[in-house]
Design a protein around this nucleic acid. Structure first.
Lengths: 281, 281
DNA sequence: TATGGATTGGAATTATTATTTCATATTGCC
DNA sequence: GGCAATATGAAATAATAATTCCAATCCATA
């Protein structure tokens, strides 16, 4: 009598569904609970699970035995294994993408490489971003009369998105573009009542650094997004964020920087709304 | 002496990394093991984990206590919680984050929301992108004398990054900006030997649509990135990609579009290099 | 409705596991 | 090199949790 013991979650699930009709009442109850709350089975104790499902611990064990396990503990293994698998899949998938991309198999591989770079960057920044810095930067920017946005070359797309978003939120802002060659004058208008978002990654565009220096000497506070503490931007900044973007085929991802930029922008929008609400009250 | 006990995994991780230098040898050993094998900590018993890490169970408990927990069990909770979180799908997480951010739960929630939106979009496009379309678009663009890049408003940052990347790869290109009001003339220069990358999402910027129509009537092939088959851009395009970007707080992620744009750009660069190598040989 | 078998509840038992303790070793400092 | 403070190992102990057992209950069938 070697009953087939389901070793993986999907088989187990199928088995339970299959026998659902024939199970006694309380056993059916715990079976339904198990399929609805697999995480609880993975982490709970026999007693806690039984309580949540409204049965006795012994019933839980009978359920396990009826499925061919020799006790609750071995049933639980299956639920734990499921979590492990699921969880690793994301990293593994990323791993696989990167491997494939580096194998250089056609244009799909290039695409996969950029996806992998973006995912990695997002993972990374969500681990390393400092909440206190975020708060600080947002309150600093929320107080500004005009927010100047400063970025060139690779970082320029981020600046243009910030400018777009600030505009939509009706927050006064000025994008410092290089086109007309009037940057120095534009920078000259900024006062300590304003603020700057500056973005630059190595190799730092000299113009960005120069303008950041000039503007900080006028006493205008700077929030910088850059890639290391050695960045010249970090020196001039009141608050700065270190964002490590993964690169692929020589082009850095912008996804982490974009996410941070959006969080700053929307954060400022919210803070202003809150402040004006308070003023009215 | 209310030491801050890290309640979530990321904080815990940061704390450990922070103190790494000052930890005694065996404690450091278990610390490293914990960060390398978080799943084992989540599911193992104190004894089994200690054995795998090559230390005594008591060391494991001391490690937990040093971090401010009152024992191994409460440390383990953090690792279990992490698995639960991670395991819930991105969509669910995004949902939860949206709710949290709307509840006014701090600026970190906003940031997390943008990260989740970006991740979701990346997952999505990596599932749905059609390889054949990619190939087709790349060969079309690789043959062009000049690549025109057309996008306004929300999509403009992508266009500017494409232009930057094409420039770096020494591929002749022309960004159609609205600043000088000379777009119509600029569009007039394009010939069937050129090609266009056009990007527009609902609500479609009228100028983009208008220019795309004009340029397609001149017989210039268009590669479009847009968000549905009902998009007016899709009509004019020789090849078009459907990219579904998740949004958060009213702003759409650009990460999927960016990744696709980069893949196109670098793909064209590679194709040209291959072609010129062949010509020489 | 009486009867046997299956099912269930709850407490007793056994097992496993976390924690504590204490002796020993190691390290840093004078 | 000696001393104190700190860290480590190993076993004892306490705690928690799984399992078993048995009486009570339910249910189908005659």
């Amino acid at each position: 009598m070697d009953e087939q013991v389901p070793r993986d979650f999907e088989t187990l699930r199928a088995t339970i569904l299959d026998r659902r009709e024939t199970l006694p009442k309380r056993i059916a109850q715990i079976a339904a609970y198990a399929l609805d709350n697999p995480d609880d089975i993975a982490f709970g104790t026999a007693a806690s699970i039984a309580a949540s499902a409204g049965v006795q611990p012994s019933t839980l064990i009978r359920f396990a035995q009826q499925l061919g396990f020799d006790g609750f503990t071995s049933l639980q293994q299956v639920f734990r294994e499921r979590l492990r698998e699921r969880n690793s899949s994301y990293d593994e998938r990323l791993q696989a993408l990167r491997a494939k991309a580096e194998g250089g198999a056609g244009h799909r591989a290039i695409f996969d490489g950029f996806i992998a770079a973006a995912s990695t960057s997002l993972n990374d920044i969500s681990r390393t971003l400092d909440d206190a810095h975020l708060e600080e930067a947002i309150s600093l920017l929320a107080k500004a009369q005009t927010i100047y946005v400063l970025a060139k070359r690779r970082s320029y797309p981020v600046a243009s998105y910030i400018a777009y978003a600030l505009g939509k939120l009706k927050i006064r802002n000025q994008l410092i573009e290089s086109a007309a060659g009037l940057n120095a004058e534009m920078v000259g208008f900024a006062t300590p009542a304003d603020a700057v978002i500056a973005i630059s990654f190595s190799p730092y565009a000299p113009a960005t650094i120069e303008e950041a220096r000039a503007i900080s000497e006028q006493g205008v506070p700077i929030v910088a997004i850059t890639d290391s503490s050695f960045s010249p931007l970090a020196q001039f900044a009141r608050v700065w964020f270190e964002v490590a973007e993964a690169d692929f085929a020589g082009f850095r991802s912008l996804s982490a920087t974009m996410a941070l930029a959006m969080a700053l922008t929307v954060g400022v929008g919210e803070k202003r709304r809150d402040a004006s609400r308070k003023r009215k009250a």
